[in-house]
Design a protein around this nucleic acid. Structure first.
Lengths: 249, 249
DNA sequence: TCAAAAGTGTTTCAAATACACCCATGG
DNA sequence: CCATGGGTGTATTTGAAACACTTTTGA
């Protein structure tokens, strides 16, 4: 059974990072998580900081390992530094049972963890478990499952941040496939905001920003009337976000 | 000459924090900074993380030491983790010349620094230099002075964050004295936003939130017509911020 | 052929903006 | 007595919200 191959001298003590990787599929928001070996708990993909890296580079590296993707949209949102936050780790080191002693010792130090959230296009992700986990899978951020130490808190905080930053960050652009329908975009906004929006007002408002190109294609295959496909106009979207999408949904 | 009396075994390696302490005085935004000994550079008040502390507690401790104040409004806004960020420190260790070798060695490690911003009532602060600095004083966040390593970047980022969070955080409440005038409050908003606002519209809008109590007093002593004094209605202000002061200035 | 989803348009109401006049004060 | 800053009011424009009808589709 493969172990972590973590060279503890390559990374800084006391500092870790956790990534809340958001995807959007079947009109639902998802988070990519690891199911830890020998436990039922889910954990966020995370990692440690190498000597010559920034935290952003370390997060990118982690993302690449779990999703296969480069150039992911990534943002720090909070540092979790409760000295008791990793208490559970010491009580439940089951998932470390195949690791060498120096790795176990390293894990048992106190860590402050920098939370990042990432936005990825669901269909492009190839989920890769790490050596400490049995599976890497998408679950609902609202799912009531057992989570490693404070990872539930980290997800909740990421969601709150996402909600607040919905009008300042290219959330739609990063979470949806290149071509998408208006109802899809609306569902995305609704999921993040946690409330329903009026279909017609939503469309009018989002179109008024001139950040979408309407395509001469419709999404076929679904039941009911075929909706048009849209794509983001990357130029104007970028510009619009710099000004802030002035409204609040 | 007093030295730091830093017991390096009490704090974690590699982790520091810096506080951008905002105050408002003479209708101008100010930042509390230290002037480092034996250099011309200004540095942000900062500190290290003790083993049993959260970062927030460590920041509070730092704030208490520099300002004499407790219960300060404090918020994390970013972690600065460029591996070269403290390069200058190694080139210019002048301000450490009275420190024992273990302290110098500690300072020469790589640090990632968690940025906090704090909002304080200017007149209540009693600025206290630390052992490494000659003075602790208020300067303009826009001042073009020499700053320690990346502290200018940290201030800029704090300002940007403050601007974005102006409608979500109790910024007025924390920065102004208990009684203040409408023009003062407006100047505060204008300074943070970096643009002018219409006097009459500002007043109408801020009053519409019902977060101010108009007092039966006027601010005397100034030239020209004496403006009324207001105070925040803490109950409704708190409530309003939870909902977000829906507008954007 | 009909239920359910999607396209499109109008009316209404609230908020942001622009603008004007009067009042008080110290120099 | 007047320049400056402060108090208060109104008309206009803009955008958000509420709401209705028609079209397309697969079951």
């Amino acid at each position: 059974m493969a172990n972590l191959h973590l060279n503890v001298s390559e990374v800084l003590d006391h500092i870790s990072l956790d990534c809340v990787i958001f995807g959007f599929h079947d009109n639902e928001l998802k988070v990519l998580m690891l199911r830890l070996k020998h436990t039922n708990a889910y954990a966020l993909p995370g990692g440690f900081l190498k000597h010559e890296e920034t935290l952003e580079q370390a997060a990118e590296r982690t993302l690449k390992e779990r999703t296969g993707l480069d150039n992911i949209f990534l943002k720090q949102f909070k540092v979790f530094s409760d000295p008791n936050r990793d208490k559970l780790k010491k009580d439940n080191p089951e998932f470390l049972k195949n690791e060498p002693p120096e790795v176990v010792a390293f894990f048992n130090k106190r860590f402050i963890s920098v939370g990042f959230y990432a936005l990825v296009e669901f269909s492009k992700v190839d989920p890769q478990p790490d050596a400490l986990s049995e599976a890497c899978e998408w679950i609902s951020p609202f799912a009531d499952v057992e989570m490693f130490i404070d990872h539930k808190d980290i997800i909740d905080k990421a969601l709150t941040t996402l909600r607040i930053q919905l009008n300042q960050q290219p959330i739609g652009l990063k979470l949806l496939p290149r071509k998408f329908t208006m109802p899809q975009l609306q569902k995305l906004y609704e999921t993040i905001l946690g409330r329903e929006l009026d279909r017609r007002n939503f469309q009018r408002k989002i179109l008024s920003y001139k950040i979408l190109n309407k395509l001469n294609e419709r999404k076929t295959g679904g039941a009911h009337k075929a909706p048009f496909l849209y794509e983001f106009n990357r130029e104007s979207y970028k510009q619009a976000l710099e000004d802030g999408l002035s409204g609040i949904w």
